[in-house]
Design a protein around this nucleic acid. Structure first.
Lengths: 179, 179, 179, 179
DNA sequence: GATGAATGAGAATTCATTCAT
DNA sequence: TATGAATGAATTCTCATTCAT
């Protein structure tokens, strides 16, 4: 087998890792699985990412980045003439009715951080960024934090129970928290 | 070595499994680890629980039961003369300032449910029970669901960021959701 | 492949480990090599000896035992009418002109103990046993220790330089240490 | 990154290799470990030393050289008015009470030589040099060889058993071998 | 000349599960 | 019924060496 010159192999390994986590969860992440998914030799994954933790963090950092970009795009698209509650409800709805695998991936990040020391800063960073962004709209950090909590909690409920998304109910709760 | 008469060995195995999950997370659950923790032969764990999933479900079912019992005890102790928001804030505070390992264990249940088909009903049951219980107080399921979401989300925030518990802030959010 | 009932498999694994160390040195000891040599599955070696250290210690303990038995046999065969120096010289000669692999194995034990925490007690035990045994003949521990040192050092010299065994020279040195 | 002009990089790699062997033993020697310790790129170690054996031999040759220099310095410092036994005892004492890591390193050379074809000449050279040097004092090669054996054997005993250094005992043995 | 990248082999362990006793 | 033994697959990680740049 020829030795391929492959300058963005690290990036391809990260992408493969994200797909693996998306499909099998963080518990299913392994050097082998990633190597197979990226179609690179096993040793290549450990060459570029010395430990599985390194790879996990690199992958989650990228997921985080994409998530933050999505949020910021949402913010830029917010219509000032529409109540914030409507726009937030839309955000939740799009997250839930869109790619379920992606939503699961994002929440798996949160929960993995509970056990994974190395992942906690990533999750915290995500939370903080979301709070800060919402605080710019609400003018009040406490309210922003409550909103993030509410949204996260409701999203988890839906992911776990499979209940249908109820737009009015979510909107109503958001309105109340906004005060 | 005499074959000991040991009628509650299955229970002791479950208890050991809970300790193992509490210490190492669900990813750290293994027949071997449980057998060592319970001080029973390895074969005993597979004899009483044919697969690791069976053992995991049995353990989580027990954790759930204890959690529900705790909630119900909280409900019985609720002072009708005190605003519900105060009692709920106290509930969150006690969960966060008490045994962190226990809180993590409960949220790890959520994580497991995201990926583990077999665990999802347990998580859903827990959520539904909490909603039902709160609905008895709020008189309204939608509000109860929003409350549960808010509480879960805020608890996760605290577990992940390590931020200090801010009683006034939490209480304020609960008050708003209660309407 | 049928699951063989094989009650003395642990012993066979130890024997295989000794052969492996004999042929490739302690650095060449690996689960794989032992499994192949013993003709058992790889997992079998780790089942019976949880870590490679465990296996190494078990193997060296057996080598030690055989060595001690050899020394004790030598002692029982010592002819009281022959000067001790002659009998000791014979002991060294037999060790050097006999199975070179065995002699190397025994000295590798000594030297491995320098780095291997787990092996040190074994080497020390061997040394102490030899000293005690010789002290019974010399009546004096200090002399016994010097004798053991001399014998070990000369043996190493021969193993390392490949110099021919010079009976008179060795005997002469032993005589002097005996005083 | 500029290509630095670094004419004694090979020497720095050797020094790093000696430190690695000193800390982790010969079994712990690897290109990677040396590259990290010397703070040079991995490829640099294989560029200057084509195989790991080459590097090991270069490192041990240097250790040998330092050891021989130490012995020769000892010889030059020998006080003719002091009995040779006293000076030899001092030599052993200094080796044992000084840097234990250094003493271990020197005896690890012996271990390596037992198994490593390429290292044997180095060990033999060391032994021969010491014998020759002592023979200049004793006037007799056989006695010198016995002395070297005694010293090596006693040193090993102390390294392995951790017994306290007993000056009188060692001196007594040396006196006897000197005849 | 010099070096980062690449790779395939092999290292120790862990493990769920099966099966003979 | 209960359990120690057994096994094969999979785990992470390390490594010597080669090679394209």
């Amino acid at each position: 087998m020829p030795r391929r010159y492959d300058p963005d192999r690290p990036q391809r390994i990260i992408d493969a890792a994200i797909r693996v986590v998306g499909e099998r969860g963080i518990a299913g992440l392994s050097h082998r699985a990633v190597a197979a998914e990226a179609d690179v030799p096993l040793g290549s994954t450990t060459y570029h990412f010395a430990s599985l933790d390194d790879l996990l963090v690199a992958a989650l950092r990228q997921v985080n980045g994409a998530w933050l970009a999505g949020i910021e795009e949402w913010e830029r698209g917010v219509d000032a003439s529409v109540p914030l509650a409507d726009e937030l409800t839309r955000l939740v709805e799009e997250s839930l009715t869109g790619d379920r695998a992606r939503a699961e991936l994002e929440y798996e990040l949160y929960l993995a951080a509970l056990r994974h020391e190395a992942v906690r800063p990533l999750a915290a960073e995500c939370l903080d960024a979301m709070v800060e962004l919402l605080a710019r709209r609400t003018g009040d950090e406490g309210t922003a934090r409550a909103l993030v909590g509410l949204i996260d909690g409701l999203t988890l409920q839906h992911l776990l129970t499979g209940r249908e998304f109820d737009r009015a109910e979510v909107r109503d709760a958001v309105v109340r928290v906004l005060g």
